[in-house]
Design a protein around this nucleic acid. Structure first.
Lengths: 351, 351
DNA sequence: TTGAAAGCGCTAACAA
DNA sequence: TTGTTAGCGCTTTCAA
């Protein structure tokens, strides 16, 4: 695999051309070449064209390192995840990167996977690279310790992750509002006995979604029934189990289920079908996350709350840009969720 | 949200301390300070300690930009995905980042989402940052055009993505070998009529896995039966449909199904259960990808081929480091898959 | 309109 | 053992 042919050896000494090379070949001074390439200052068109032509010919690309050294900024930011990048952080990071790329800002990606030592190490490295800003993200939307920034004045944003420092800016989906949307939707369909099967209560998102669920019931004039609320884990198996429990014994059955995520919703949907309960005719289902893999594969496809993560990422980029420009932002901002309606709540659309 | 209190205004002029500051406060020359902090050269312990103490006190962190400008390397690499980062690329990128972080190399993340113009733009930016190496990745393990590198000598690795340039290094999972593992496993369990339900044939992975499937049959002395091979799409619905087709008409039924991915496998598994066919007693199932969300939620959990993507990423990092060190690597390298055995092929483990 | 030169922060070669 | 200085590639003043 290793090529020993010396003529094929990659030319390690082939350094990229510098502005000095351009200036020499175009027979102008370095200062003139710089002016020509940066379209700044007064210069004859002839000279400018000549310099540009030479630059293109030799494939000149300005060295951003040198540029950053002169200016105080690196046009670079860091994004650090204290849990492995996953399903939730990914759309966020992607949209953020896209927004910043528009401004010519590059993104360093660091994964600290809940290892504080590694986080510190990454942070130190990023600081050495003189990043202009930092984004902290996580898998769980719970509070995390404020990042130990030794560089005062570095703009920091927490996305899908909440700092315990009130001076920091945190960007989160509006879990409560999302849940409210779901319940309003079910109530508007005439459902009266709306159950809520959700994840572990140590997640702040679970508590917030529950609050939205209860507000939704109240707004629809429905009395909350504690036996229709079930907290468990984030799995399909739990969704099936909770349905077995809710429908297994005598007593009044729910006519709708709002689930804490799409996996639970899918499990619930499967369990209902297997019991011979029709979805959505007998029981309407709404999930949370709008994760296509789950929502579309379920039978019928799931109506689900969408956290608009891409939008969240784009906005994080926007805010970071503002902070880099000198604006001070802080506090917790929650962005609205939306509802994607499919057959699990409204029946076959074509019928 | 914007804080107008001037005393709270972040100190934009608070530049990070330089080695000059350290030298001044420690009352030594800049050269001495540098030597002390880099643990190089002869120096009195007393001076070295004093410099280090001062550096720690004022929170000095060397400016990597200046450092990189002096040395020819930036200790930075770029990773560019020509499709959005997803389920497959993520573990790869993560492991790669982790491996490189060990060497103090930071990773720029760029997403080009099949937009050649954006890819060019990102590449230009990365070149400006004087990256030491580049990793190209993609969602589909098919051939892609060699990246248009104007910087001769820049080490490039294609991971989970294959360049059409034979001089480039591509790192891929061994799809054929993985399929072989699956079929060997099923044959060893005594299955004789092994079907293969898979994805679209325009994927190279589909063609390779089919070849592995056929080799596996041959190795077990089983005659290939064209009617047991079904190519379709990568969805659960297709898995269900193919099962309905395979089991719907008279004629001999398969006693095992090797599926092209876990979604198909799950669909197949669901369809079999709903037909009253027992898995694995009547029909054993093996999936591909070992995607926990699918494999563990299926009933029973799926035996599946694991592409060892983390390992692939780690190895990509390793190879890139070697290339940066001057080694020339090229060609297509396929890394072995492994088989994760669960109840869909061997029945309840506890019984 | 163009050129010369300082300096961003750092390291390394050389001088003291 | 410590200090001085050139120079990495760039932009920007100031001078010509």
């Amino acid at each position: 695999m290793t090529d020993a042919d010396p003529t094929m050896k990659r030319n390690l000494s082939a350094k990229p051309p510098t502005i000095h090379d351009v200036a020499r070949l175009a027979e102008v001074s370095i200062g003139t070449a710089s002016k020509a390439l940066n379209a700044s200052g007064r210069l004859s068109d002839e000279t400018r064209e000549r310099v540009k032509r030479v630059a293109a010919e030799i494939g000149y690309r300005a060295n951003d390192l040198a540029h950053s050294l002169r200016r105080a900024n690196s046009r670079t930011i860091g994004i650090i995840s204290n849990d492995s990048f996953g399903r939730f952080t990914f759309p966020i990071v992607e949209a953020l990167e896209e927004r910043l790329a528009d401004e010519g800002i590059a993104v360093f990606m660091c994964n600290a996977t809940d290892d504080p030592e590694r986080e510190r190490q990454h942070l130190d490295q990023l600081l050495g690279k003189r990043i202009d800003g930092l984004v902290v993200t996580a898998r769980r939307a719970d509070k995390r310790p404020t990042i130990g920034i030794s560089a005062a004045g570095l703009p920091v944003i927490y996305v899908f992750s909440q700092a315990d420092d009130p001076d920091a800016l945190s960007l989160l989906p509006d879990d409560e509002g999302g849940a409210l949307l779901a319940v309003e939707h079910l109530a508007a369909l005439g459902r009266k006995r709306i159950a809520h099967i959700t994840g572990p209560e140590h997640f702040e998102a679970v508590r917030l979604r529950r609050r939205g669920y209860e507000k939704g019931l109240a707004a629809a004039g429905l009395a909350p029934n504690p036996s229709l609320y079930r907290a468990g884990v984030w799995s399909e198996a739990w969704g099936r189990e909770a349905v077995a429990d809710l429908f297994g014994n005598a007593g009044e059955k729910p006519d709708a289920i709002f689930c804490g995520n799409d996996q639970i919703a899918r499990g619930a949907s499967d369990a209902l079908r297997e019991r011979g309960v029709a979805v959505p005719e007998d029981v309407a289902i709404v999930g949370f996350d709008n994760w296509d893999v789950m929502a579309l594969a379920a039978r019928p496809p799931l109506t689900s709350v969408d956290m608009n993560l891409k939008e969240l990422g784009r906005e994080a980029g926007e805010s970071l840009l503002e902070m880099i420009a000198g604006k001070r932002l802080s506090g917790v901002r929650r962005r609205p969720c939306s509802l994607t309606v499919r057959e699990s709540s409204v029946g076959h659309k074509d019928e």
